[in-house]
Amino acid sequence: MTDKLILPSTSEEQSNVSTTGYEYSIGPKQSLPNEANSPYIPSKLYSESLVYKKQQVALSSMAFLFKEMISQIYNNSKSSSEFESKLLNYGSSIGLRLLELLNIRASVPSNTYSRSSTFLSSNASNPSSSNNVNSISNTSNPNSTNLNDISNATNVGINSSTNINDKNYESSESLASLVSHMRCRDLKIIDILQFMHGTVWTYLFGSPSNDLVKSSERENEYMIVDHEHMLTQFISNNNSCDYFVCGIIQGFLTKADFPCTVTPHSNNENGIDGGVIYLIKFDKQVLERENLRYGS
């Protein structure tokens, strides 16, 4: 316990400091005299590149995994509200990670992609790569979806198609050095929702969401309409499972300083499965800030 005490900064540097990372209770470490010669600490996590890799997961295995997760949470919950909030938490921990990851990927200039696309077979992967770039610029392009995209659509997971064949690029392990300008942080509600509707949805489900609607009645309500609802499509009559995707949206927006609550609503008209509507209710402060900052 004694080494966990908060030590004043006047204390001598610990001798074992060079082997450990940042310690909250000790405070900032000074760089050591022979730091440059200190052994390189190998780490799979940090040497892995953040670039898109074409990785797909079969929808079936994803559905079985999701099913197990649901029943696990369901069995450990005492009430339905507890079940929903747990599912929401699972989702939000994904959402807040996606916020950083997808933004930095969107920052990588698109000519890096076009360079790699010369390696790709002409008709197979190009459309989805252009789809990708398009969705970064926040335009949904249902027209460009061709067969390849549709077959991709049955797969959940990392769904981009940028095979960076460049070995040098991969070994450099750094994406940031390629970036001249980081993508702008989204400051307005509509910007971040567009990003959600386009890029995030493409990343998660292979295509942009079907619609992004602003409520005409209430200022702070927006809706994302998803006809396919990939994850919960096999689950009948149970909206509460959609709280997982709600959690992803909520975690994403809340972490980006747009605090909100997201709830799922089924879009069934005349018994036809019209998918799920995710209703996003922003907190008051978001609208106040928007008015103060960008109001006319």
């Binding site: 079936s60 559905a63 999701f66 099913k67 197990e68 369901y74 096999f234 689950i235 149970n238 499972c241």
Partner: peptide
């Protein structure tokens, strides 16, 4: 196999 086996409930 889709709509019964993948239903968590």
């Amino acid at each position: 196999s889709d709509y019964v086996m993948k239903d968590p409930f």
